[in-house]
C-alpha cells in the first residue's frame, strides 16, 4: 500500500472548534489540479459533518492563496470526443465545490495570504468573509487568457462590489491589492502579513464559540435573500426563525440575558 508519490494537496487541522484547511501545493502557487479539487471538496464535506468544527478558515501554503486552474495539468481541459469541454470541467470539478461551501452551515473565512487568481479568486469569494494580508491580491484573471469568469465569480463579485466594478474587474483582469480590496468591499479586514493567520484564527475562534445553529441559519438566509424578492426573503426569515427558536442555544441566549451573564453556546 506504499504510495509515497501521492501529493497531499490539502491539509486539515483542528484548533478550538476551528477547522483550518490549507491549500498545499506551494511550489505551484496552490494551483488546482484534479486532485486538489477532489481533496478540497472532501475537506469541506468533512468539516461540515464534524460537530467539533464550528467555524472554518481557508488559506494557502507558501506565497499564494490560490493561483487558479493549473494550466499544465492535462486534465485541465476535459476531452469529450474530439473537442474540449471546459463547461463540463467546470461543472464536474468546480461547481460542486462552490456549492458545498455555500451550503455548509458554518462560517468559512478566507485568510488570503497572497495572490488569489482566476478560480482561486472565485474560491476566496465563495468564502463567507475574507481577511487579507498586505501581500494579498485578487485577480479575475480569466479574461487574460481569453476566458470568462467561472466557479462563482460572476455571482459573488457583483454582490460584493456592485455591478459596475464587477464588470471592470472581470473585463480587465487587473490586480486588486489588499487595501483596495477592503475599500471596495471585496475583503473584510486587512492584517499585517505575518499576523494574518493568527488574527484570522482568533476571529474564527470567537465565531466558533457562538450559537452555531443561528450562525448557519444566518448564512442560509443571506444567500437565500440574494436570489429572492423581499416577500420571499421575509418568509424565509420566518422559516429560519422557526428553526432557530427551537435551538438549545436560543434558550441559553435568553437565560444568559435574563441572568446578566455571558452566554455559553454549545452549537446545539
Amino acid at each position: 500500500m506504499e504510495n509515497t508519490q501521492v501529493e497531499q494537496t490539502v491539509l486539515l487541522t483542528k484548533e478550538d472548534g476551528v477547522g483550518v484547511i490549507t491549500l498545499n501545493r506551494p511550489h505551484l502557487f496552490n494551483a488546482f489540479n484534479t486532485q486538489l479539487n477532489v481533496d478540497l471538496l472532501k475537506a469541506f464535506k468533512d468539516v461540515a459533518k464534524d460537530p467539533e468544527v464550528r467555524a472554518v478558515v481557508l488559506t494557502g501554503a507558501g506565497k499564494a492563496f490560490c493561483s487558479g486552474q493549473d494550466l499544465s495539468d492535462p486534465a485541465a481541459i476535459q476531452v469529450q470526443g474530439d473537442s474540449p469541454s471546459l463547461g463540463d470541467s467546470v461543472r464536474k470539478r468546480y461547481n460542486p465545490l462552490i456549492l458545498a461551501m455555500t451550503e455548509m452551515e458554518k462560517p468559512i473565512i478566507a485568510a488570503v495570504n497572497g495572490a488569489a487568481a482566476g478560480a482561486g479568486c472565485s474560491l476566496a469569494l465563495a468564502c463567507d468573509m475574507r481577511f487579507v494580508s498586505d501581500r494579498a491580491k485578487f485577480v479575475e484573471a480569466f479574461v487574460r487568457i481569453g476566458l470568462a469568469p467561472d466557479s462563482g465569480s460572476s455571482w459573488f463579485l457583483p454582490q460584493l462590489v456592485g455591478v459596475g466594478r464587477a464588470m471592470e474587474l472581470a473585463m480587465t483582469g487587473r490586480d486588486v491589492g489588499a487595501e483596495e480590496a477592503v475599500q471596495i468591499g471585496l475583503a473584510n479586514q486587512l492584517v499585517p502579513h505575518d499576523r494574518l493567520l493568527e488574527e484570522t484564527l482568533a476571529f474564527a475562534k470567537r465565531l466558533a464559540q457562538g450559537p452555531t445553529r443561528a450562525i448557519g441559519l444566518t448564512k442560509r438566509a443571506i444567500y437565500k435573500a440574494m436570489d429572492t424578492d423581499i416577500a420571499g426573503a421575509l418568509e424565509y426569515e420566518a422559516q429560519v426563525q422557526e428553526i432557530a427558536g427551537k435551538s438549545k442555544d436560543f434558550l441559553e441566549g435568553i437565560a444568559s440575558f435574563v441572568e446578566k451573564r455571558p452566554p455559553q453556546y454549545r452549537g446545539e
Partner: peptide, 9 residues
C-alpha cells in the same frame, strides 16, 4: 418549498 426542518410543520 420550505427549509427541511420545517416541512412537516
Amino acid at each position: 418549498v420550505v427549509p427541511v426542518e420545517n416541512v412537516e410543520l
